[in-house]
């Protein structure tokens, strides 16, 4: 309490002007919604769309919003792992001595950097992941599992197996998109490793691959943990785009919810809060994890 008072004392008169202005804007928007839109708030229906009591089974089950959150988390985790693998390869390619390899990696990056994410996602979806899903017969395979009795393990990792192909598409598309940026982070990491490290490794006769694997990459990846953590958070936010290719993650489910209940404001505010809590929570977590690491730089 005393802390808060002490902080209040540090406020300048201009800070008060800003705060008053801010409150005025909020009140104004509120007034517009209440007055002219004639919107009836129905906050009470929202909890039911997060957790619902299933009368038949006699237990609480996740409804639309929570299902969406879970799918978003699943996709984010798998896409991050895939993006990390692709990104490391891309980062190494960016530092390659071979011009062709370097140019290919550079082209991939520049293409992705200069096309809007939504367009990229559609292109990847129709040209790549759809083809992959068909080529590997993932659809039939997933359906076969969905019909099995013992599918708990599968469902724990991948959710409803009938939706598995769309999950795979979503993960591939998102990972391909994010890998370009992960690749840039990895490249920066590799290039930040001092030249003397390469020379020392060479001078004891290590092969190129061993130098990369045992000397350069371990140091590079250690240095890029903070930007990598940020990229992971970006990926969670970017995952909302894949609702456009009908992956049933949080944003997609919110659209569904709005369509059936018309609780536009409530639904989107709740979804925003979900994203915020996940991303901000992770950001605080990463910040905490980084701190003790500072010593072994």
């Amino acid at each position: 309490m005393i802390d808060v008072l002490a902080k209040l004392k540090r406020l300048h008169w201009f800070d008060y002007v800003l705060l008053v202005g801010l409150v005025a804007v909020v009140v104004l928007i509120w007034y517009r919604i209440e007055g002219s839109l004639n919107y009836t708030w129905r906050w009470h229906i929202i909890p039911n769309y997060i957790l619902r009591f299933d009368e038949d089974e006699g237990r609480w089950v996740a409804n639309l919003l929570l299902q969406g959150v879970i799918t978003t988390i699943r996709i984010s985790i798998y896409a991050s792992i895939l993006a990390l693998v692709l990104g490391v390869i891309l980062g190494i390619a960016r530092c390659s001595k071979n011009l062709t390899v370097r140019m290919l990696a550079r082209t991939y990056l520049e293409v992705l950097r200069n096309i809007p994410p939504v367009v990229v996602i559609f292109i990847f979806f129709f040209f790549l992941s759809e083809q992959l899903v068909t080529a590997f017969g993932i659809e039939d395979w997933a359906r076969a599992i969905a019909r099995q009795d013992e599918k708990e393990v599968w469902e724990f990792f991948f959710g409803d197996m009938r939706r598995f192909p769309s999950l795979v598409s979503g993960v591939i598309v998102l990972a391909l998109f994010e890998s370009a940026f992960v690749g840039e982070i990895v490249r920066a990491g590799i290039q930040s490793v001092h030249k003397g490290q390469h020379e020392a490794a060479q001078s004891i006769g290590m092969s190129k691959t061993d130098q990369l694997r045992f000397i350069v990459l371990p140091q590079a990846l250690r240095k890029v943990v903070p930007p990598m953590a940020n990229q992971f958070i970006s990926l969670i936010k970017d995952s909302s785009i894949i609702s456009l290719i009908s992956v049933q993650e949080l944003t997609f489910k919110t659209v569904e919810l709005v369509a059936s209940t018309r609780a536009i404001f409530e639904a989107w505010i709740v979804t925003a809060v979900f994203y915020f809590v996940i991303c901000f929570g992770l950001s605080l977590l990463f910040r905490r994890l980084e701190r003790p690491k500072a010593r072994n730089a």
């Binding site: 003397g196 020392a200 001078s203 004891i204 006769g205 250690r222």
Partner: peptide, 20 residues
């Protein structure tokens, strides 16, 4: 070259130990 380097050790001004 790699065979050569196995027979020739090098000590650098900046040590260049592997910090990790």
């Amino acid at each position: 070259i790699r065979n050569l380097r196995q027979e020739v050790g090098m000590v650098f001004q900046q040590f260049n130990l592997f910090p990790h």
